[in-house]
Design a protein around this nucleic acid. Structure first.
Lengths: 197, 197
DNA sequence: GGATTTTTATAGTGATCGATAAAAAAGAAA
DNA sequence: TTTCTTTTTTATCGATCACTATAAAAATCC
């Protein structure tokens, strides 16, 4: 009984698909950033009137947070890290390479929405994005700690910083090759820091 | 006859110091970003009315560009690179360290104004900042090319990307030690890439 | 068929955005 | 003093910002 479609609630039924609307919102946020898109454009792209948007999502910042949540949950960047017994340095370098390709492939969704959102001018939205970024950085550090307790935090911070810079380059229109080259070079520091365990 | 104070121009004299006004504008832009500060706040901080601001600087974007120009010209980050015959890897790592300290020292001017401006939502302002960023990256690449023609471009891109990520962390309130640790680790990749020449 | 509940659409809220029109004010040039 | 030039001030401009009051529409419950 979790499905809201099954349990017919009273009152007028919603005329739009919440997930589809979130997809449209995600596309707009990713293309133009939180500060670069207004609620009017969002509502228009979502095929919804402003009052319905606010009734369904609460506020622009809340909508952004929900979009970020889906974006994080669906991200496959860190999948390579979950392989048991994988070499830490190799896996992290692979993630950097995957990020480079992901960031630069789709020009309408360049860069990382979380890392870019963390730099916005809006305080609320930036705080949401920074919290999610911190969670991801902590996850990487925890993933490193068993094998490299001493270097875990620095390597995690470093990886996030490099990805943030790569995201900025991708949004500026840098070609994939430049980003992958940077990612590979970034892997050198990770290998040097972690050794070949 | 370059000094405008000496050659008394006709008409009512300007009631404010252009350089002082630019300093105030720089402080506001650096503290809140281009998108985070409006012309009303700028004019107020500069001690000037809006029409005077537009008469003296043209537009908000033009004012930002002029501020960025002063900011770049006064930057001392790349000073260590101009020492003749300095070790390339050592000098670049030193620049990363200097950036880490510079970015995190003053909480009211965290991060790099150029790198942050390159990510703004305003297209004009972002283009200005990206052009200046590209100039700096090209300067680093040209500085590397004589000794490391093959690695010059990648190392320059990498250095800028890491600095961009460090700038974001600084704006999020990361302490200096975390930034310097990331900078030092970033130097490992530079050393590995350039060797010990 | 009513009563209730929820979402819809219309229209508009005050605030702020970047930028300006118009005229008074302050100086130099004649 | 008169004329001319430039900057000052005051009072906006229309557009957009995030957001909402109000009421009609569409469903279920009784």
């Amino acid at each position: 009984m979790i499905d809201k479609k099954e349990m017919k609630r009273r009152g007028r039924p919603r005329a739009f698909d919440r997930d589809v609307a979130l997809d449209q919102a995600q596309a707009l946020f990713h293309a133009h950033g939180y500060d670069g898109v207004g609620v009017a454009a969002l509502a228009d792209a979502m095929g919804v009137n402003a009052p319905s948007l606010y009734s369904a999502f609460g506020s622009k910042a809340a909508l952004f947070d929900e979009v970020l949540g889906r974006y994080s949950d669906r991200a496959t960047l860190a999948d390579g890290l979950s392989v048991p017994g994988v070499d830490r340095a190799e896996a992290l370098t692979g993630m950097l390479r995957a990020a480079a390709i992901l960031y630069a492939t789709d020009p309408t969704a360049a860069g990382c929405m979380v890392l870019e959102g963390a730099r916005g001018a809006d305080a609320d939205a930036a705080q949401c994005a920074r919290a999610r970024k911190a969670t991801s950085v902590a996850a990487i550090a925890n993933w490193l700690r068993p094998t490299h307790p001493e270097q875990a935090d620095v390597v995690a911070d470093y990886t996030a910083a490099l990805m943030s810079g790569m995201s900025a380059d991708a949004r500026a229109g840098a070609p994939v090759e430049r980003l992958t080259a940077v990612a590979d070079m970034g892997g050198l520091a990770i290998a040097a820091m972690l050794g070949r365990n």
